[in-house]
């Protein structure tokens, strides 16, 4: 049992990170904290994707001497899967865009209510 948990440790960590992020998004009252939560949540998912691609003993998915040296035997098993990586590049960009928009909105909120605490904002909106 312990082995099982240990062998999948990055998945466990990813779930813990995700929960931390989720808690910050829902539970924290400060808006910037919520955004930090979003950030952690998203990186956790990226961690998950990267972990799915990783292999013990796998190397970077770059084929050496691909040109000019005849046909090499390419052992697909010895490379990590590059596709999730590619997806995650996009996901990181999306993440940063979300971050940018969120922070811009937070600044707009601050200008209007002069606070970043959700409860105080709700108090003012009554």
């Amino acid at each position: 049992m312990f082995d099982f948990i240990l062998s999948k440790y990055n998945y466990w960590i990813y779930i813990i990170l995700m929960m931390i992020g989720f808690y910050a998004m829902i539970g924290k009252k400060n808006l910037v904290k919520k955004i930090i939560g979003i950030n952690i949540f998203q990186t956790a998912i990226i961690l998950f994707f990267v972990s799915t691609a990783a292999k013990r003993g796998g190397t970077l998915p770059i084929v050496e001497h691909a040109h000019g040296h005849g046909i090499h035997h390419i052992h697909a098993a010895s490379y990590v899967n590059p596709l999730p990586h590619v997806l995650m590049l996009t996901a990181i960009v999306v993440m940063v865009s979300t971050l940018g928009v969120a922070l811009a909105i937070v600044i707009a909120i601050y200008r209007r209510y002069n606070t970043l605490e959700e409860d105080e904002i709700l108090e003012q909106r009554k």
Binding site: I35, N39, T43, A53, L60, L89, I92, M95, V96, L103
Partner: peptide, 24 residues
């Protein structure tokens, strides 16, 4: 873990630009 390209992007975009945005 072998995801060098993701790592680079994360370092520059998220740890870099993201932090700058946050600080701003």
């Amino acid at each position: 873990m072998g995801a060098v390209d993701v790592a680079f992007t994360e370092a520059s975009v998220s740890a870099g630009i993201g932090t700058v945005l946050f600080i701003a």
